[in-house]
Amino acid sequence: MKVLVADDDPGSLLVARAAVERAGHECLAAADGDEAWKLFLAHRPDAVVTDRMMPGMDGLALCRAIRASETDLYTYIVLLTSQDSREDMLAGLEAGADDYVTKPLDPFVLRARLLVAVRVTTLHADLAHYRKVLSRQARTDPLTGLYNRLKLSEDLEQLHARSARYGEEYSVAMCDVDNFKSYNDIYGHQAGDLALRNVAAALLGQVRKSDGVYRFGGEEFLLVLPRQGIAEARVLLERALEAVRKLKIEHHGDPSGELRLSAGISMFGAGHAVDADMLLGEADTALYSAKAAGRNRVEAAW
Results as ranks from 00 to 15, higher is better:
Gly218Pro: 08
Arg208Leu: 09
Leu80Met: 14
Pro10Leu: 11
Thr102Met: 07
Val109Glu: 15
Leu13Glu: 10
Leu196Val: 07
Ala270Pro: 08
Thr122Asn: 14
Val133Gly: 10
Gly212Gln: 07
Gly271Lys: 06
Ile66Thr: 04
Glu232Tyr: 00
Asp88Glu: 14
His160Arg: 04
Ser153Tyr: 12
Glu94Asn: 14
Leu222Phe: 08
His272Val: 02
Asp284Asn: 12
Asp34Ser: 15
Leu41Val: 14
Glu21Asn: 00
Ala18His: 07
Asp88Gly: 00
Leu287Trp: 10
Gln137Gly: 00
Glu219Val: 08
Thr121Glu: 06
Ala36His: 03
Ala36Val: 01
Ala112Trp: 11
Asp7Glu: 13
Arg215Met: 10
Gln83Pro: 00
Ser256Lys: 05
Ala61Met: 13
Met278Leu: 11
Leu236Trp: 06
Gln228His: 04
Ala47Ser: 14
Glu154Cys: 12
Ser262Phe: 08
Cys63Asp: 03
Ser12Asn: 14
Lys38Gly: 05
Glu169Asp: 12
Cys175Pro: 04
Ala23Phe: 02
Ala36Trp: 00
Arg17His: 04
Lys132Val: 01
Gly33His: 06
Gln190Ile: 10
Asp254Met: 05
His272Asp: 13
Leu93Asn: 09
Arg67Pro: 04
Glu242Thr: 10
His272Ile: 01
Arg64Phe: 04
Arg113Ser: 13
Leu62Met: 13
Gln228Val: 03
Pro226Gly: 05
Leu41Ser: 13
Tyr76His: 12
Tyr288Asp: 07
Val133Glu: 15
Val172Ile: 12
His272Ala: 05
Asp211Val: 00
Leu93Ser: 09
Glu154Thr: 09
Gly11Met: 13
Glu232Val: 01
Val49Phe: 06
Gly257Gln: 09
Val244Phe: 12
Leu223Pro: 03
Gly59Tyr: 04
Gly205Pro: 02
Val274Thr: 13
Leu223Arg: 05
Ala283Cys: 10
Ser210Thr: 15
Gln206Glu: 15
Arg139His: 08
Ala173Ser: 09
Gly92Val: 10
Arg197Ile: 03
Leu150Ile: 14
Asp275Thr: 03
Leu60Gln: 08
Ala243Trp: 07
Asp211Asn: 11
Lys246Met: 13
Gly264Thr: 07
Ala19Asp: 07
Asn198Gly: 05
Gly217His: 04
Val78Thr: 12
Ser153Lys: 15
Tyr100Gly: 01
Gly92Leu: 10
Ala61Thr: 13
Gly271Ile: 04
Val298Trp: 00
Gly271His: 08
Val78Ser: 11
Glu220Thr: 10
Val101Gly: 07
Ala202Lys: 01
Leu159Thr: 03
Lys248Phe: 01
Asp58Trp: 08
Val15Arg: 02
Ile186Asp: 14
Lys248Met: 12
Leu152Ala: 12
His252Asp: 12
Ala65His: 06
Ser12Thr: 15
Ser82Lys: 10
Asp84Asn: 15
Ser210Tyr: 02
Met57Asn: 12
Phe108Ser: 14
Val48Ser: 08
Ala290Gly: 11
Glu250Ser: 15
Leu236Asn: 06
Leu152Lys: 00
Tyr74Ile: 03
His189Gln: 06
Asp176Ala: 02
Ala202Ser: 12
Ser163Asp: 02
Leu93Ala: 03
Lys246Arg: 15
Gly33Leu: 07
Gly145Glu: 05
Asp34Ile: 05
